[in-house]
Amino acid sequence: MSQHALPLTLGVEEEFLLLDAATGDLAPAAPQVLAAVGEEGVKSELMLYQIETVTGICADLEEVREQITELRSITAAAAARYGCLLVASGVAPGALLGLDYLTDDVRYRRLALRHAGIVAEAGTCACHVHVGVPSREAGLQVLVRLRPWLAALLALSANSPIAGNRVTTWASWRYRRWARWPSAMPPQHWHSTGDYDATVRSLILQGKALDERAVYFHARLSPRYPTIEVRLMDTCLSVEDTVLIVALVRAMTAAALEDIAYGRPAPRVPEYRILTALAAAARHGRQALPALPQRLLSAEPLASLLTELARRGTGAERQRALWESAGSFAEFANLLAEATLTPATRGIETDHAPG
């Protein structure tokens, strides 16, 4: 069996907000909710109003779907015991709470001391997708080949158009905040894992990253697992959105491994073009979706998943529709919580096709 034909294992980390069910405001209740859940795959995050869920190693998309559905369900049920909503949104739709609500963790306190201004406006929620790779060297070559496609992942996952109790002009307000981290950048055109490791060391020595885990490349070699970790995306509003993003990352990884196996060179794309495409995707969402290779678009199940997304709209598009329909901020928060748990069966009117 050739390298590119090997089954690709998957893992997903999803970050969520806790909102007060009565007001829609941020609810710093993560310690209580975590104690109520008592589940290994549900963890604390940077802020006391955030929770992260982590799947096990999944063999296929159906296993991903089952695990993230169950994790969302049990965490939401625990949150409800404390009058809280579990909400999948890239940023808090209302007011932030600031550094007083930092999770009590030595590493987080060190981050806050070094990057106080950024951490005060952090509390953003992402979806991180892990894909198993044969080796670090293969993973490094995959990262280089993912560079031209990063904007597509952001455009399709964008799910943070509401912030500060208003509709912003961005589909992903989270990206705007996230990009402030000095190590938040696309992968470079590294030639070897030695080059990659040298870049990581340089960022740490320059004080731009606390440690290897705080090197926030949009896609990186995982510091803890034998995977690549694509971490650019907003946390997705529905399970269906997450499954689509996982399917797309898997397809991109498989295509990259195939290119490596056949000796096809990685495309040379200037960083300024990647950053320009990312900014457009964050601002305009699916309207700025860059063209994807036909070998990705035509493959199943990705083709069907993209067609379904075109019908229902992205998270950002659905959030705006929910904002317009809600009679109050609290009602909007409750609608977001419902969308976090309910299959996204209701479409919105849209003229934008995927790709």
Rank of each mutant, 00 (worst) to 15 (best):
E137Q: 07
T69K: 14
W173Q: 09
P161V: 00
A78K: 09
V54L: 15
V129T: 09
A76P: 05
S172C: 10
T69A: 13
E70C: 14
A116Y: 11
L71R: 12
E70P: 14
A95I: 10
E63Q: 12
E137I: 00
K43G: 14
L48E: 00
V106R: 15
L154T: 05
G83T: 08
T69E: 14
L150F: 01
A158L: 02
T53H: 00
L146W: 08
G38M: 04
A36M: 12
G132K: 06
K43S: 15
S157R: 00
R174A: 02
L113T: 08
T169H: 14
L85H: 00
A76S: 11
P93R: 01
A155G: 08
G41K: 03
A120K: 11
Q141A: 13
E137R: 06
V87Q: 01
R72N: 07
V64L: 06
T75C: 12
T169I: 13
A163W: 00
R145Q: 11
S73R: 14
E39L: 03
R114E: 05
G98I: 02
C125V: 03
R145W: 07
S73G: 12
A76N: 09
L97Y: 01
V54T: 15
H128S: 07
D100N: 13
V119F: 09
A163N: 01
G94Y: 08
T69R: 15
G41P: 12
L99W: 08
P161G: 03
A120R: 13
S135A: 08
G56V: 09
Q67M: 13
A36K: 09
G164C: 07
Y175M: 06
A163R: 05
R166E: 10
V129S: 05
L46Y: 14
R114F: 05
L102C: 05
C125F: 01
A152S: 10
R166H: 10
G90S: 02
N159E: 08
